[in-house]
Simulated scan of single mutants.
Amino acid sequence: MKWNVREWLQRYGPAEVLSILATLAAAGLTFQLTGSYVSTALAGTWAGNAAYFGYILALDIWQTRRQLRAAGRAYSAHTLGRNLRALVVEFGLAEVFDSLLIRPALMYYLPKAVGSLSGGILLAKILADVTFYVPAIVSYELSKKRLRRF
């Protein structure tokens, strides 16, 4: 597999920035409201995911619309389905382990371990991203030839 670091940074970088902001905001607010580390870990995970995948989906739709428009074709519900399928292939396996196990567990334990809510949440996000991106990038590269040609 070719190392497409610039492409990966362009694809995932802005989504990560949004995800970090959403994660920290949701975790901080949830902890203030509930004082619960479990609720904080789940809220941080879900808010980060919503921001991340919302951006990635919007990016894919925008790129596909632009590509189809240049070819004189319309973006349709079928095309949206293909965009969604490509995202499931790209992130499905990585996301199952990440959202259901790794990220919430790290966001629960690390704030306690480091003695700082925001520091622990940020460290948890960074560590979880390592286990998330390896399978996600491999799947993305494998899916480009078959699932991302419109």
Rank of each mutant, 00 (worst) to 15 (best):
T23G: 01
V17Q: 05
L87H: 15
K2Q: 11
V114S: 08
I102M: 09
Q67H: 10
R65S: 06
L147R: 12
L80D: 08
A136Y: 05
A26M: 02
N83F: 03
G48D: 01
G35F: 12
S36R: 10
L29M: 13
R82Q: 15
A47W: 00
T34Y: 07
V88L: 14
F53C: 04
R82G: 10
V134Y: 10
E141N: 11
A15S: 12
E7D: 15
Y140M: 15
W3E: 04
E95F: 10
V130F: 14
L42H: 01
L24G: 04
A43D: 01
L147Q: 11
F150T: 07
L80W: 05
L93T: 11
G35Y: 12
K2L: 07
R146N: 15
A128Q: 04
G119P: 05
G44W: 00
A43C: 04
R69A: 15
P104D: 03
L59S: 14
K125F: 11
Y109V: 13
Q32C: 09
R149D: 06
L122F: 13
W3C: 03
P14F: 02
L29H: 07
E95P: 01
T23L: 13
G44A: 11
R149E: 12
K125D: 04
S19T: 05
R65V: 06
G115C: 12
E141L: 12
A50E: 00
V130C: 09
L147K: 10
R148I: 05
G72N: 06
A50N: 03
L84H: 08
P104K: 05
L87Y: 13
G28D: 03
V38K: 11
E95K: 09
A113Q: 12
A27V: 04
L100A: 14
S118M: 13
W8G: 00
W8M: 10
S116Q: 08
E95D: 14
E90I: 04
V5H: 09
L21S: 14
L117W: 06
Y133E: 08
T64E: 14
S36T: 13
S39T: 03
F97R: 05
S139L: 08
E141F: 02
L142E: 12
G28P: 03
G35V: 10
A105D: 03
L59M: 15
I102S: 01
I126S: 08
P135Q: 09
M107S: 03
P135I: 06
F31I: 06
A136Q: 07
L87N: 15
S76Y: 11
F91P: 00
T30R: 02
A43V: 04
Y12H: 11
I56K: 02
A51W: 00
L127H: 08
R65G: 07
T79E: 15
Y108F: 11
E141H: 07
G120H: 03
I20M: 12
R66P: 02
W8F: 09
A58F: 09
I121Q: 01
G119L: 01
S39H: 12
L33F: 15
L127Q: 06
L24P: 03
A86W: 03
R11V: 08
Y133A: 06
G35T: 11
